[in-house]
Simulated scan of single mutants.
Amino acid sequence: MAAVTTPTRSPRRASETPDTPAWARWANDHRKWLFAAPAMIFVAALIVFPLAWTGYLSLTDAEGSVRAESEFVGFQNYVEVLSDTDRFWPAVGRTAAFTVVALLFEVVLGMAIALLLWRPFRGQKWVRVAILMPLVATPVAVGMMWRLIFDPNIGLANQVLGWIGIGPQPWLAGQHSALPTTIFIDVWQWTPMVVLILLAGLTSLSDEPQEAARIDGASTWQRFRHVTLPLVMPTVIVAILLRGIDALKTFDILYATKGRGGGSFHEVETLNVYAYGLSFDYNEYGISSTVLIVFFLIIIGSMWALTSRRKEAQR
């Protein structure tokens, strides 16, 4: 005779009785979400409300004061902003240039330094502490410090160049040298962050693939290119994602070194600096909100592209 099987029921929890209400059983089954719900709602409100308010202002002609009467103008601000070739699109170009160049140097230098710190050596602890020192200072303090170092008249940078026979350079004061100089400052401060992320990824790797490649006669470069880099690539994508989004939003270093408008000729005026000037210098809240919404969409698009690239690297 065929064995008769009876459906099994999930064991009842000790806290549940036959008289336990249905809502109590449901709450017990979903308690992890219920406990996290207040914090999730609070964080969502902090994000959704400012974004919704900014989106609303971008559809009005608000200016002078946020309490002043404003009229709904629809997408007129977006048309005006996207057709602005004097300030908006140059700011987009500077934002892209600042982000891409700074990120390129930070990832390359960060990988090189992380590889040097990967293997233990004497004094490694102190070297790591010294490398991470730039992260201790705030970006505004770093910007003011480098502003004094790069001062054309009394700055240490030109004095050092004079010792080796090179004439003084404008650095932050130059129309064409200001943006590369601010990129250098950003690289100096934030490369240690990339080092920290990549070093964590390298230390989690197994030694077996390296030993196998070494036994097969692979050189140091071949082991890095064909073994280490593919294995650590997901961590590299994480570093690019975190640092890239942060570089896109850079404001404090630029404002501390060049002030309003990113300089007299707007030489370091990125989208953040441009939107800040529209809001607090000219009180054009409708236009500035439009710039911020467009900027937000650029950031979301960049996040999506980098996240997609990370998923491909993990396959």
Rank of each mutant, 00 (worst) to 15 (best):
R214H: 10
A137N: 13
I237R: 04
P234R: 05
R122D: 06
A36F: 04
E267R: 12
L202S: 04
W126P: 00
S219H: 07
V107R: 03
N272M: 14
L231S: 13
A3D: 13
R243N: 11
V140Y: 00
G165L: 14
I287V: 15
W221S: 11
S289W: 04
G174A: 04
P168L: 05
G263P: 03
A200G: 09
T99G: 06
A141V: 15
F35H: 08
W33I: 11
I47C: 11
G262P: 01
V273P: 01
I253R: 06
T85A: 12
G259V: 09
G74V: 06
L198E: 04
P11V: 11
A112E: 10
E16Q: 14
V227K: 02
M145T: 12
A212L: 08
N158D: 12
A52S: 12
D186P: 01
V81I: 15
P168A: 10
L205N: 04
D19H: 11
D86Y: 03
F150G: 05
V4W: 08
E211S: 12
D246M: 15
A91T: 09
K249W: 00
V195P: 00
A130L: 13
P168K: 10
S302D: 00
Y274A: 09
F98P: 00
N158M: 11
A2Q: 11
F42Y: 14
I183N: 04
S65L: 05
T257L: 08
V273Q: 01
V236K: 01
V187F: 04
P18I: 09
I131M: 08
A157W: 01
A218F: 07
T257N: 10
S302T: 14
P7D: 15
L172F: 06
A114K: 00
V160R: 01
I113P: 01
L135Y: 06
I237K: 04
G110H: 06
F75V: 13
W146N: 01
H30W: 15
Q159F: 11
F150P: 02
A2E: 14
L116G: 08
G123K: 07
